[in-house]
Amino acid sequence: MNRLLALTALLALGAAAALAQPDGMVLVRGGAYQPLYESAGGQEEIPVESFFLAETAVTNAEYLAFVRENPQWRRSRVKPLFADDGYLRHWAGDLDLGSALPDRPVVYVSWFAARAYAEWKGMRLPTTDEWEYAASASEMRPDGREDPEYRRRLLAWYGRRMPDPMPAVGSTPPNYWGVRDLHGLVWEWVGDFTSALITSDSRSNRDRDSKAFCAAGAVGAADFEDYAAFLRFGFRGGLDAHYTVPNLGFRLALDAPNL
């Protein structure tokens, strides 16, 4: 009787877990993570809870399905407050991808648009901490930042020209968590991009406590050599929520309670 109960419980758990993991998403197991800039509280390491992250960024085809069902997000109808005049510029029309390929990451979308898509799917955008935590993984390790070869490869990507046409989603190898293309494809929106702890003049890093940081350098950064992270923080510092950018897309995240 006990064995039967145990077996049933196990099966139920297994089923629950399987059902809980949405299609196309992987579980990023939580841990402690060292952000590039000290948090306002001054802690060096902050906990990140487990969460689901999409394996790949949202594609043109997926976004097309969204605007079909949500006409207020079509290019000709979107409110300027929610997206600037670059919105979906790479498409030929409201519902016509034109020469934009269906399996490429959708770009020229604003933060408002990305959030609306996420809501439509019953999901959300990842937070900066979640994104950076997942992105610090190399192929073999949850934290690949100590590996100089890995760092060199990342920095080299940022320093090179974007290939034209842009590669399809899923074209880079999965990292430790099974997530692809966090590096090497497009920049990605996060839910809380405005809290990026960097000013537009990236030499002065005044946080909410107005600590005086020197010019020229990253005093206050946890890792002076994580140039790829600096580049991302610099990028987020230049964004407004209604901006659309030729190489900025997004992917989805979801809470993973009790996992």
Partner: peptide
């Protein structure tokens, strides 16, 4: 002028 002129691609 650095703070006033930060521009992401296309802006």
């Amino acid at each position: 002028g650095a703070e006033a002129t930060l521009v992401v691609p296309g802006h």
